[in-house]
Amino acid sequence: MKAHPMVGDSLLAGLLAVFDLLIFVTRVQAENNAAPPPQPWFVTVPIILGVVVPLVFRRKYPVLAAYTTLFVGIPHSALELGLSSLFASCIMLYTLVAYVGRKPALLYALANAVISGIQIPLQYDSTEARVVPLIVVALLLGLCWALGEFVGARRAYQAEVEQRLALLEVERDHQARMAVAAERARIARELHDVVAHAVSVIVVQADGAAYAVHTQPELAERAVKTISSIGREALTELRRLLGVLRSEEAGGELTPQPGTQSLSELAERVRAVGLPVRLEIVGNVDDLPAGVGLGIYRIVQEALTNSLKHAGQGTKAVVRVERTGDRVDLDITDDGRQTAHSLVGVSGGNGLIGMRERALVFGGSLDAGPRPGGGWRVRARLPLATE
């Protein structure tokens, strides 16, 4: 019914119409032999329908439906065709209070009071007979007003909650985009340092080759080969750099960043702050491109930092770095309980967002999640660029 409110309103209108028609048929049968029916069918049925049909459209056109019911209800009550005009008017008052506002509802209630105050004395002779209908009408209208106030307040509260939830979702998405942008800017600055360092080495080697080209040709040849190797590596890093959104603040010293050679120092530092780490390196990872080495270092650093913060006391971690062919696989696991715990001593980035962005920069992938037997696992695969 909530998804299709007109269906429920149609059933309500149908019940009121059937109720009035049954009253009319009963009266006709009772007076069939004594006198002609008090009203013919072609008068009674349109009036009954005119009272109840607006109920179907009360949510879509509340004001029009309310006053249609009110004015058609005048002949309906005068001909004593049933109680559907009273019930329909009360439902319309509730609708105006809940869906439109207090001012239109107050005007409608006053119109009902005026019509009832004029019509009821005309229909009843004695004072006692007039008082009861007036009291019943006043009580029903008051009850419907109170019900409309309650439902209207709940609808307003629900609308406010939905609006706040929508704003929170927008804010969450905005924060996520900001985190991604900040991490990409950080990665871009680090790659900038790698490329700048390579260019500095090239300049030094080129100057040395220029001085030794005539007196020491072998030394000059080695310098040129070094320039070629470092230049190729710098081009690879530069291509990656162009794919990263970089902030305008490109600070940083022209020195190489940590790489796979620094993983042992990282493991020692993590052990010093309370997390036993076993480091396993399979294959030769010392000659990796500087950018790839930096990415490996940062992913391992971030994963161990998360273990320090969330795994709890007594946790052990295993870091496995394996180079196979043209890729490097990372596997960082811990056996923690994922409880709230925070230690200081290892710097980190933006959690899973940062690790995933670092893997994507090099065309790789990263998965993170709980282990079936307990603990947490981070797995990354970084392809190596070939020239």
Rank of each mutant, 00 (worst) to 15 (best):
Pro5Ile: 02
Met6Gln: 08
Leu11Arg: 12
Ala13Val: 03
Leu15Asn: 06
Asp20Leu: 05
Leu21Ala: 05
Ile23Tyr: 11
Phe24Cys: 11
Val25Asn: 12
Arg27Thr: 09
Arg27Glu: 10
Asn33Phe: 06
Phe57Glu: 12
Tyr61Pro: 10
Leu64Met: 15
Ala66Val: 06
Tyr67Ser: 07
Thr68Asn: 00
Ser89Glu: 04
Val97Arg: 02
Arg102Lys: 12
Lys103Trp: 10
Lys103Ile: 04
Pro104Gly: 01
Gly117Tyr: 06
Ile118Gln: 04
Ile120Phe: 01
Pro121Asn: 03
Asp125Gln: 13
Thr127Ser: 08
Thr127Cys: 09
Val131His: 04
Val136Arg: 09
Leu140Trp: 13
Leu147Ile: 03
Phe150Met: 14
Ala153Pro: 06
Arg155Asn: 08
Ala156Trp: 07
Ala159Ile: 08
Val161Ser: 07
Leu165Asn: 15
Glu171Pro: 02
Met178Val: 14
Ala179Asn: 12
Val180Asp: 03
Ala182Glu: 09
Ala188Lys: 04
Leu191Tyr: 05
Ala196Lys: 02
His197Ile: 08
Ala198His: 08
Val199Trp: 01
Ile202Gly: 04
Val203Gln: 09
Ala223Pro: 00
Ile227Val: 15
Gly231Ser: 07
Arg232Glu: 15
Glu233Lys: 10
Leu235Phe: 14
Thr236Ala: 15
Glu237Trp: 08
Leu238Gly: 14
Arg239Glu: 15
Arg239Lys: 14
Gly243Met: 05
Leu254Phe: 04
Val277Pro: 00
Arg278Lys: 10
Asp286Gly: 02
Leu294Val: 07
Gly295Pro: 02
Glu302Gly: 13
Asn306Thr: 12
Ser307Thr: 13
Leu308Gln: 03
Lys309Ala: 09
Thr324Gly: 07
Asp326Glu: 13
Leu330Ser: 02
Thr333Arg: 13
Asp335Glu: 06
Arg337Pro: 02
Gln338Ala: 07
His341Lys: 13
Val346Ile: 15
Gly351His: 05
Ala359Met: 01
Phe362Gly: 03
Gly364Leu: 01
Ser365Glu: 05
Gly375Cys: 01
Pro383Ile: 04
Ala385Phe: 10
Thr386Ala: 11
Glu387Pro: 11
Glu387Asp: 13
